[in-house]
Design a protein around this nucleic acid. Sequence first.
RNA 1: CGGGGUGUGGCGAAGUUUGGUAUCGCGCUUGGUUCGGGACCAAGAGGCCUCGAGUUCGAAUCUCGACACUCCGACCA
Length: 479
Amino acid sequence: MDEQKKMVEEITSMEEDFAKWYTDIVKKADLADYSSVKGCMVIRPYGYAIWENIQRLLDARFKATGHENVYMPMFIPESLLQKEKDHVKGFAPEVAWVTHGGSEPLQERLCVRPTSETLFCEHYAATVHSHRDLPKLYNQWCSVVRWEKTTRPFLRTREFLWQEGHTAHATAQEAVEETERMLGVYADFCEQDLCMPVVKGKKTESDKFAGAVSTYAVEAMMHDGKALQAGTSHYFGDGFAKAFNIQYTDKNNKLTYVHQTSWGVSTRLIGAVIMSHGDNNGLVLPPAIAPIQIAILPIAQHKPGVLEKARELKERLGKSFRVKLDDSDNSPGWKFAEYEMKGVPLRLEIGPKDIEKDQCVLVRRDTREKTFAPLSELEAAAEKLLAELGASIYKAAKENMSKRTYACQTMDEITAALDKNGDGFVKAMWCGSEECEDTVKERTGVGSRCMPLGQESAGGACVCCGKAAAHLVYWGKAY
RNA sequence: CGGGGUGUGGCGAAGUUUGGUAUCGCGCUUGGUUCGGGACCAAGAGGCCUCGAGUUCGAAUCUCGACACUCCGACCA
């Protein structure tokens, strides 16, 4: 094949230009397209199918932990948004406002929800009266709007799809447990279903959600060594309850404020998957969320019996897997490249030679390794290969993370590690002062990502000021 | 929000310096031959040159403005 044609079809290599590689995949794998409003993207059927799988799997986990789905309005009156002062301060700069209904100016302008804490609070204030009404374990799937200045498909868009869980509890302890439980649900989902290792941690004071007592996050590492916040879980204490007057009568007939949490993940997860597993042939999808798990590609499909056999296999495999049979006129080579671009985990080739031997060829997306599978054992073979692929891409992502995690004691060590090995997580102690946090960022370019849970090491000196350190911090550049 | 880059059929580009009514590759349509790593032949279809104002006999090309995309920083899911 001549070079000219190659240029047309191939994507930019990730080594050459990671940012362009990313947007190439978004476009060429048919995940999303730009629209006429900056930062608002069209999520195309293939991209949306990935989101539907994410939704389905997460929703099951939410239900399993006792949550119910609800739907809150898209608009928030300005006065309602204003009730919690830290919250409004955090979000005011990026809300979109509705000022007119038709041609009539509104008496009070309405903001398009950037997040729905205030709406849930208003509702809880109206419906929570007794300890018997608690806990409230609500979740909603919706889109929210934040008027971002710079945007990128999936990673940062002005409108994005997400879920937001909002819970109200009788006690602080219960709410803290909920916050940690949901962080765990996210971490589990990322690791098991997205095959993406994450670091669970607590955000520093300066990095907390607007209005939260504490914010937790799962941080993933992308292929280029930059960090991506994959999900967050917040503990609110009774701050919102006081601002919105959410009280219940407890067992001792005493009026008490509730304790709240909220937690969310968004379509950003799709960006995370692209940048965790993709390669120079395109997307690589974890089997759990792949819209097509097996692409059946007939070879020499005009020859007698081939299409019939391919259809038979589709019927059979369709009972256990998400399967697509491509019987279009495109050449086999074209189809190979196409389904690799789309990240389909497993490709099944079936041609005259296979039919003779009562077998087919299975090819893993990540390694392109071919396996000849007897048709009698096809389901088992496919199952095994999908599981192996999942384990294998998880392992590769994990290795990338370990390889790019640098333990440092001094500022010079940080700079040296980043210079030598490229972007990654820097593990370093921190005294807890905002000054040091800022200084580290200024001088080394890495900001605090989180204070990892379960890794608190006592003692040591702050990497910046040298005083006694309170926390181990993962630092990094972030998306 | 600061600094760069880009905007021409569906996609990628040439043409802009020096104004004269748009070119190439891929894709698409039809017919035929092919088919185990991005096939080939033939005949076709398809363009508000991002948008708006201006200069000019005449603008993709010059001027001004807007919008969008994108990269590098600062901020955020």
